[in-house]
């Protein structure tokens, strides 16, 4: 008899132990599904952790949260509260304000309608956005930002993180103090980028009549263009070098333009696009693109 009691006890103990240990050691997973209009506005406010967003063809937002602590909840708000949502707000809410670092971590994975506009604040952690047609606004302190195949306007800011924008087609504004900025294969006609000590890389074929304004303080600026690229270059630097590896047709500044430091005004092919590059002490290089990305 005692044997049977012991066996039942241990069986119950083990059954309870498995989920209890998983709960203690691993993050909690929660999810929400919202029916939305085809182009909703979605706001995510997180503290630390990753935020990954993918566009899909459904008018549905599916959100999965990996939550490090049971003392964190996710606040959700749909507007309007009935019917298909036009706006969705998701926010990490610490029930214990003393939670910090990995204990305050929430990883968001969102599948959203491809027409969605996103506004994301994620101070510490990666933000990755893929395939969206709406506008994207992302702010981070130490996290990296990677945005791919976005067709709308992009505004990305990080204090110390890197920003990589791949195949954008709308207006792009990116800034960081210490992070690098990379623009790969853009079809945007306007890009505006600034970093203090990071490096800026532009790799692509500037669009005719497009304007690309990039500025760094002591980071280098590297522009890689195919031989067929048609652009006019206006590069200036107070102390940095200007290196032209594309053999531009150099032009002279009008004599009314006076400046200190180094300057390079040149044209490649018909000069259809405009590149304005400035650096205080970093090197600016224009190079031919060796391989198509």
């Amino acid at each position: 008899m005692n044997y049977h009691v012991d066996r039942k006890f241990w069986a119950a103990f083990l059954i309870l132990l498995v989920p209890a240990s998983a709960w203690c050691e691993g993050p909690l997973q929660r999810s929400n599904t919202f029916n939305t209009i085809p182009a909703p506005r979605i706001t995510v406010t997180n503290l630390t952790g990753t935020v990954e967003v993918r566009g899909w063809e459904k008018s549905v937002v599916h959100a999965v949260y990996m939550i490090a602590s049971p003392r964190i909840e996710i606040d959700t708000e749909e507007v309007p509260s009935q019917g298909d949502a036009e706006k969705i707000h998701l926010a990490t809410h610490l029930l214990d304000r003393n939670l910090q670092g990995p204990n305050a971590k929430v990883d968001y994975t969102l599948d959203v309608p491809v027409g969605s506009s996103m506004e994301i604040r994620n101070p510490q952690g990666l933000v990755r956005i893929d395939k969206l047609n709406g506008d994207v606004w992302v702010e981070s302190v130490g996290g990296n930002i990677i945005i791919s195949d976005a067709a709308g306007e992009i505004v990305a800011r990080s204090v110390g993180g890197q920003i990589q924008i791949v195949r954008p087609s709308g207006y792009v504004e990116a800034s960081s103090v210490n992070g690098n900025l990379e623009f790969l294969s853009p079809s945007s006609s306007r890009i505006h980028a600034r970093t203090t000590s990071g490096r800026i890389v532009y790799e692509g074929n500037p669009i005719a009549a497009g304007e690309y304004v990039m500025s760094s303080y002591n980071g280098d600026i590297d522009v890689f263009c195919p031989p067929s690229a048609s652009f006019e270059l206006n590069a200036r630097s107070v102390h940095g070098k200007l290196i032209d590896d594309m053999k531009l047709t150099h032009k002279r500044y009008h004599r009314s333009v006076s400046f200190y430091g180094n300057a390079l005004l040149g044209m490649h092919n018909q000069g259809a696009a405009t590149l304005e590059l400035t650096s205080y002490s970093g090197t600016i290089r224009i190079r031919p693109q060796t391989t198509q990305p």
Partner: peptide
């Protein structure tokens, strides 16, 4: 939070360096 403080401090140092150098120029 310590890692945020470190990020802000590093960035402030960079900007202070930029300000100093530009003021000198």
């Amino acid at each position: 939070e310590p890692s945020m403080k470190a990020t802000y401090q590093k960035s402030l140092d960079s900007l202070d360096g930029e300000i100093r150098e530009c003021e000198l120029s």
